[in-house]
Design a protein around this nucleic acid. Structure first.
Lengths: 223, 223, 223, 223
DNA sequence: TATGAATGAGTCTTCATTCAT
DNA sequence: TATGAATGAAGACTCATTCAT
């Protein structure tokens, strides 16, 4: 993710070794964080997993929290990259929107399932505002909400969805997706439902929640 | 709940004193838990708030965790009571369903806003799976999901909503509601939106997400 | 034991009530001390047993330790009374000595078995020098040792036992008796052996250990 | 026991340092346990004695109790090794038995005197059944009793001692020895008696307690 | 005489981080 | 770059005793 170092010029072997160790530590940390939670994760467990001394850890990271934040950052980047690169220019019909949402949803589901541990960490620690990393997660949520609100605005401008409180709609969508993901990827509930089916449900629900089809219920009843 | 003491006749002072102290400690604990989170909350902070000695705490509660569980239990009872006592017998039309959902939603919103700190504690600790109380919360979520799934099933049987994966629909609903509540009650985002408006949005979204109106998108587009 | 109050004149009912309560507390304490050991015994357990408030305890005793010491004192008095009132004037033959030792031994065994809990307390707490009551027990042991040493001296003067280090002999005897009693009364090991048999063994062992019959082993072997 | 490191060649400093610290902590612990007793011994006292931080203690031992058990185990091993390696094959006469008992007794006395504090700990904690380590000590006592009972049985089979309740005889012997040791090594009473004299007394007493020479007292008297 | 609510000192243990080697 | 021994702060819980009523 951050290994886009394009110049393997100067001291490659050293660097590579360093990066390998750094990555190994991060890898181990992800495992431990996912299994124990941030507070209960011990640095000693992480280094033990890699087979280095405790002190070595601090050659690569400033501390437990810094590494945790980096890991969280990686996850958030991963998610934002995945859902961020759509082509809004193409979306001119609801059918197209639906296809696009499905496409993005499937990509996201795939990514999260590929990174189960990372996902678990996010949902175990980050959804709560307790941890020391609250600001980071809060920021992420706000970024996500803004992005979605803006997206909703665009869709509305194009007549694809009806008027609504776009920011609130964004939060609803995020919550809906997050909990389903949590149940599916983290807790293993809903495992009898295929990922594609899940995406299908979410997309349909999102789309149907953005039309006024329901608004005549009252009228219809009285007629 | 315990304020059913309408006769201050016989031995009111003793009982009242005891309960008052117990309540004061719980009150203080709610404040501290909401502010610091379970792990970081210190018993010393709680008793300091009330102005009693450390030992006094243990006269009324078995320990930090027991009190926390009691608080969580209080909250969950509050929620379950609020959302649990609807009248499914009356729900024969979508309009009636909508009215009922709105009624329950408003009541719930009101209750949560009255108990901001309790709500905050729940969302701080309970959404994460980390804390020592995970089982309790997990149980709550599952109870909630089952209740909603069953509710969805009933509605479906009555022809009020369309077929869907009811359990998944339940999770989506829970997630949707929880995040909006979190933003609104806990974080204060969405504060420009009135509670009633929020409920309105959620109800509409839920209802619209349960009809097949969107299913002809593809067809409509190609026609 | 201490109720030798010979004047039931002035306020008898009050006194009797007081003594009853005092005794009840001591009784309960013996039970608790025997079951939990001094350190783990809680004043709250004692008063709970009697059904009075914590504060009441301190109306009758200065505190946990003082009561414990009193209980220990009771036990030691009991033992000293039991073994102390022999008639050394009668002991002129080894057979008489043997009969007398058996008589005292049986009486002691009987008393200890009647007061199992008291005995258990002594052996659980007092044999170790750890507790706060060490001085008391040390004193008891020394008194006992002196008494026995003196007894041995008398027997020797009368030609009933051979010369030996009387003080050491006393300690050996005490140790021998104590451990057997501990196994028998406290731990329940040796329960297949009848008390009289135990006494018989101890007496025989004591007597045989005080003659020179063994002194010719070496000579006998070489002959 | 672990000082079999005769070659300070390869990595002596590291190992030695570790062991030294471990040993220093154990040494200090023995001192503190002997002085204060297990319950009152504070880890802080132990580390203070050595001059290290509290945390350091836990690098070498799992906790206070574990170290205590290790110390107790050391003592029991010491004792069992000392008394356990006799040569029963040689014991064919009472004179030989007497020599052998004297030899073992002297060795044991020497060992206990060399390890006064260890011995004191055992007698302070272990004779009482109160401490957390009761099971360990109880086990030791039972092992000891069984070993001695078996020993008595063997001696009896060879005609060296008379019939008796071997298990009870074992307990008597243990009690006799323990109290004398306690007085001599721990309390310093009997210090005017030389160790060899003590052993002599104990051996003679044991031997004389195992013959029937006394059985004719009654008869002799009446004759 | 009785109550019992309140006190508050006392201690083991964990673990992220440092630093001398 | 690597080690890993050492650090030391931090906190929940118990229970004998007191004292106002």
């Amino acid at each position: 993710m951050t290994d886009d170092s394009s110049d393997p010029s100067s001291q490659p072997s050293t660097n590579e070794t360093d990066d390998e160790r750094r990555d190994a530590l991060k890898e181990a940390a992800i495992e431990v964080f996912a299994a124990q939670g941030y507070r209960d994760a011990k640095v000693s467990s992480i280094v033990e997993e890699v087979g280095v001394a405790q002190g070595t850890f601090y050659l690569y990271y400033d501390g437990k929290q810094q590494l945790f934040e980096e890991i969280l950052h990686d996850f958030l980047s991963l998610v934002l990259e995945t859902i961020g690169n759509w082509e809004p220019g193409e979306l001119n019909t609801r059918a197209a929107l639906r296809r696009e949402l499905t496409r993005v949803g499937r990509r996201l589901t795939g990514v999260l399932r590929e990174h189960r541990e990372l996902t678990a960490i996010f949902f175990r620690e980050a959804l709560s505002s307790t941890s020391e990393v609250e600001p980071l997660v809060r920021e992420f949520h706000e970024a996500l909400a803004s992005m979605l609100a803006q997206f909703n605005q665009i869709l509305h401008d194009r007549g694809l969805i009806e008027s609504a409180n776009f920011r609130m709609l964004a939060h609803m969508t995020i919550g809906m997706v997050e909990r389903v993901v949590m149940e599916h990827v983290v807790h293993g509930d809903l495992e009898d439902v295929s990922p594609d089916e899940i995406v299908e449900h979410l997309v349909v629900h999102y789309l149907s929640g953005t039309t006024e089809s329901m608004q005549n219920d009252e009228a219809r009843e009285s007629s």
